[in-house]
Write a protein that binds this DNA or RNA. Structure first.
Length: 487
RNA sequence: GCUCCUGUAGUGUAGCGGCCAAUCAUGAAGCCCUCUCGAGGCUUCGACUCGGGUUCAAAUCCCGACGGGAGCACCA
């Protein structure tokens, strides 16, 4: 027996999404956001899952803009959503906009009415719901098809005011689950649509348009949040009435995302009020904000792949995402010194002091930052480190020299082994350093100085040693503006 | 109220009848290493919601309780 077999070996787990049923190279899947704003972290789950499967099986991914509620549309979203998906690395094969397809929905409703599977209801909404609750039909439901069609034409042509009539799909009024009994398919809206203007007044509800589009676009697999479970049940009625083959449905659990603002309406309001800087404000959970903070799309992808597709509700963990992101950016991010709330020290006892430090400690081949200070030998260290210095009287300026406390401070050689005795190494900057800011996730800003070699940095994330990773947002010789990523 | 989904460490996940004194990641604590409080190495902490049943054997199957979530919109 091989002795190595006696050692309990450590297994590396590979993370792989579960296989889809009936999957072959012709799968068709979709991402179907409502264009009310840009995508946020919550949307990235369904985006990544669909993309992963389509790439794995070699099918087709459709982006469908579900803009059937004119009151909740932000025209910019038609542009922002594809941008966000593109940044995420999600490859879209075809794009559809539902507002282009109203005639298709109308035709299908007409056919449903002709089949006796839909009706036009002119009852008061509350009454209709009340009857449904009791499992009873409203007076409109059993009217003859000819009357329904007459009403339908009137509905489409603007003969009813808002709330005066709806087209309803029949399901089963006695269904034990009240949530799947008869549902509205079309409603009257006179609010202008950003793309259609006032061309139509009959607006499809999502259960209608989604069912029809999923069929017409040839969807084989649909992944959606568990909150749509009842909608799936409703949509299946439409599939059954037309005799269509249903896609395979998967419902993942709800994600609770703490510590960040996701609700589009709130973000929009805060932008309007000038409270937030825009859709990429770091306090929000938008894809744009994550990008701005230096989160890599690969980290987001890994996060969702590892989370899988179970229907348990989960708690989103920023720590876990940061850990994955750190794996990615640690290697690519060069190291620089940033000194928060700088305190000045001059150093006596040396003509001029030289030093150098690697751009990356694990990648010496990338080269070094070189330092020369002379004259008054002025350096700055952070207010926090200054307090420590005043307290312990001796400190090492990392990669430069050791100094003893005093005014001025005294040069004390360059023996690195002093660190073994418990003396602390602190980051510092010299004269000519660049004013720098770090925008924190809570919206506050840290101020300080960054060493000027950061001006030559090509990559957009760096690590400020002992502070954390930051994304370089705006770098000029006058000012370096950064956004905090994570420690 | 009705209906549906769901319960493995702080968080996320693996396991789906015996190989489980339960996997991996992240987190926390400690040590080593490193001129960073990063990375790397090592160690430790920490979970099968509960109660019945089926079985020689249950985290795994069944039933019940309890917990978490969603829907019952002329939003998506």
């Amino acid at each position: 027996m091989d002795s190595s077999m006696l050692v309990k070996e450590k297994k590396e787990r590979k993370y792989e999404l579960p296989a889809l049923e009936d999957a072959n190279s012709k799968i068709v899947m979709r991402i179907a956001p409502g264009p009310s704003g840009p995508l946020h972290i919550g949307h990235t789950r369904v985006s990544v899952l669909n993309d992963e499967y389509v790439k794995r099986y070699g099918g087709k991914l459709i982006l469908r803009m579900e803009d059937t509620n004119p009151e909740k549309i932000d025209p910019d979203a038609y542009r922002m959503i594809p941008e966000d998906l593109d940044w995420l690395g999600v490859r879209i094969d075809e794009t559809y906009i539902q507002s282009d397809r109203f005639e298709i929905y109308y035709d299908h409703v007409r056919r449903l009415i002709e089949m006796g599977k839909a009706y036009i209801c002119t009852c008061n909404g509350d009454d209709w719901r009340g009857l449904k609750e009791k499992g009873e039909a409203c007076p409109c439901r059993e009217l003859p098809v000819e009357v329904q069609l007459e009403r339908y034409d009137r509905l489409l042509s603007g003969g009813y005011g808002e709330g005066e009539a709806v087209a309803v799909v029949k399901t089963d009024l006695k269904h034990p689950n009240p949530a799947v009994r008869d549902f509205v398919a079309l409603r009257i809206v006179y609010h202008p649509h950003p793309l259609l203007g006032e061309k139509y007044c009959a607006y499809p509800m999502m259960n209608l348009s989604v069912a029809i589009d999923d069929h017409l676009m040839g969807m084989t697999h649909v992944i959606r949040g568990k909150d749509h479970l009842n909608n799936t049940n409703r949509q299946e009625y439409i599939f059954d009435y037309f005799g269509w083959k249903k896609p395979n449905y998967y419902h993942y659990g709800l994600v609770n995302i703490p510590d960040s603002v996701l609700k589009t309406s709130i973000i929009k309001q805060c932008i309007r009020d000038g409270e937030y800087s825009g859709w990429d404000d770091v306090r929000t959970g938008t894809v744009r904000a994550l990008e701005r903070r230096g989160i890599r799309p690969e980290a987001i992808r890994r996060y969702w792949v590892e989370s899988g597709m179970k229907s348990v509700d989960i708690q989103f963990s920023w720590d876990n995402l940061y850990g994955m992101n750190r794996d990615i950016i640690d290697e690519t991010s060069n190291r620089y010194f940033f000194v928060q709330d700088p305190v000045r020290y001059d150093i006596s006892g040396a003509e001029k002091i030289c030093g150098f430090a690697p751009l990356h400690p694990d990648r010496p081949e990338r080269g070094t930052r070189k330092y020369t200070i002379e004259g008054s030998n002025t350096v700055f260290i952070s207010a926090d480190d200054s307090k420590i210095f005043a307290d312990v009287k001796e400190i090492r300026l990392k990669d430069l020299c050791n100094i003893k406390y005093g005014t001025p401070a005294a040069y004390d050689g360059n023996d690195v082994s002093i660190l073994k005795t418990g003396v602390r190494a602190v980051q510092w900057v010299c004269r000519g350093s660049i004013p720098a800011t770090i925008l924190m996730p809570d919206g506050t800003t840290l101020e300080g100085l960054a060493e000027d070699s950061v001006l030559k940095e090509k990559n957009d994330t760096v690590q400020f040693e002992r502070v954390g990773f930051v994304r370089l947002e705006k770098v000029t010789p006058e000012k370096v503006e950064t956004v905090f990523t994570h420690r």
